[in-house]
Computed example of a mutant assay.
Amino acid sequence: MKWDQIEGKWKELSGKARASWGEFTDNELVQIAGKREQLIGMLQQKYGLAREEAERQADKWAKKL
């Protein structure tokens, strides 16, 4: 799924994001709002990932949708 589609369907997809990254709070999921850069930043912050790894995880997750 493309990121513009993810952003448009974020309310539906935020549960799937929570299933993949269980440490996200409801407020953080609202803050991400389906935006790729926001998700990458939050992955870096919450999980201590390097940017490249966070990008890889976000893109892999998007392709599974």
Rank of each mutant, 00 (worst) to 15 (best):
M1K: 03
M1R: 01
M1N: 02
K2G: 12
K2V: 14
W3I: 07
W3Q: 04
D4L: 10
Q5E: 14
I6L: 01
E7R: 15
E7H: 13
G8S: 15
G8F: 09
G8P: 09
W10Y: 08
K11M: 12
E12D: 15
L13F: 12
S14M: 15
S14W: 08
G15I: 09
A17W: 11
A17F: 12
A19L: 14
A19D: 15
A19K: 15
S20H: 11
S20I: 05
W21N: 02
G22A: 11
T25H: 11
N27L: 08
N27G: 10
V30W: 08
V30Q: 13
Q31L: 09
I32A: 08
I32E: 07
A33L: 04
R36S: 07
E37A: 13
Q38I: 00
L39V: 05
G41D: 11
M42G: 00
L43Y: 00
Q44F: 02
Q44Y: 04
K46F: 00
K46D: 02
K46T: 12
K46M: 05
Y47H: 06
G48A: 05
G48H: 06
G48I: 04
L49I: 10
L49T: 08
R51E: 10
R51I: 02
E52W: 02
E53V: 14
A54T: 11
E55Q: 09
R56I: 03
Q57H: 06
A58G: 11
A58H: 08
K60Q: 10
W61Q: 03
K63T: 11
K63Q: 14
K63N: 07
K63A: 14
L65K: 01
